[in-house]
Simulated assay, not measured.
Amino acid sequence: MNPRTPEFLTREHDPADPSPWLALYLDRSTPLPDAVKEAWLADSSCKSRQYLLPFLRPLARAFIILIQVIKTFLPRRWSHSKLLHRVLAWGLEHFVSPEANWLILRHFHLGAQVLSFIARNAPVPVSTTPLEPMRISDLRDEMFVKHDLNLFNFVIRLNSALREAGVEMHAPETVDFSMIRDPGLSLADMPQRKRNFLDLQSAIELFTPLYQLMLTDNDFWRAANSLQLDETVGIYTAQILEAPQHLILVNNKHPLVPLSTLRAGYRLVLHGLSTEMLHSLLMQFKSESMAASKTPTQTQPATPPETTEPPPPPSV
């Protein structure tokens, strides 16, 4: 699936100098599919992340502090969301690596499927608003802001309905996995120019100050705090599946403890990985459920025919 096979898959294994990326790729303790893991590790092991990110990260955090000071003198409602998304889409199209762009587009689809899964299996009816961009240009429709709004609105609608009905989240009699599927996005369709070199984490660190500058403080803080709902979504899923042991793979700090926006870029990467992990687990559960439904039920052994005893001899 990956048009550019990463170096750690082509280099011969040297026991005296083992590749940490190869070890992570071969490891099966996490449920990521090979194609996703290959793209993730190819992006993580690229030169821009190794040499550029250490310089970009402190600069980006310094700009976050500076912009926070500047915005104290701007009108409270000052916002240019449409322009922001045009700039983000342009930057992704022209400078971000194919693997990073593929993972970003996948994230919208996987997040929509996970929320739909929870809504379909919740004990109360709740609506969702799926976002499923197929091309980078689709992100211009304020997709990033809508993604954050969807998450908070879903949590509010779900829990309002639960409170009104006086019920708690619990496992249904039959879990519906029909909405969980591969998004159908192709890595080969992502921009492949020479200038598409920027890795996912470097791109996020660069875009975060821009995100802060061109949105209201309320929108930016809401976006940063939405990352802490990863555990919330994970708990809902665990309650439906009755599988709390998998929550260890969904970790982005406690939802009731808001964190500084300085680490928003790093936590956004964790958010993306948590979503991939959760979706992979649901795909596994779906496969197991389908396999179980196809397994023929064991037939009971045939009951031997009843033997008829001969009638007793007539009494004399």
Rank of each mutant, 00 (worst) to 15 (best):
I65H: 13
L66M: 14
I67D: 01
V69Q: 15
I70P: 00
T72A: 05
L74F: 05
L74G: 00
P75G: 03
R76D: 11
S79E: 14
S79F: 02
S81N: 11
K82N: 03
L83V: 11
V87E: 09
L88C: 10
W90F: 15
G91E: 06
G91I: 04
L92K: 10
L92G: 11
E93R: 15
F95W: 12
F95M: 04
V96G: 04
P98M: 09
P98E: 11
N101A: 13
N101Y: 13
N101V: 08
W102M: 08
W102V: 05
L103H: 07
I104L: 14
H107D: 13
F108K: 06
H109K: 06
H109I: 00
L110V: 13
G111K: 10
A112T: 15
S116Y: 02
F117W: 13
A119L: 07
R120S: 13
N121R: 05
N121G: 06
A122P: 06
P123Y: 03
P123V: 05
V124R: 09
V124Q: 07
V126G: 09
V126W: 10
T128R: 00
T129D: 15
P130S: 05
E132L: 14
M134A: 12
R135V: 08
I136M: 05
I136D: 03
S137M: 01
L139A: 01
D141N: 11
E142T: 07
K146Y: 03
K146S: 13
D148P: 00
N150F: 08
F152D: 01
N153W: 07
N159Q: 09
S160L: 10
A165W: 09
M169G: 03
M169I: 06
P172H: 03
V175R: 04
V175C: 04
D176C: 12
F177D: 03
F177M: 08
M179C: 14
I180F: 01
R181Q: 14
D182Q: 07
D182M: 05
P183C: 07
P183G: 05
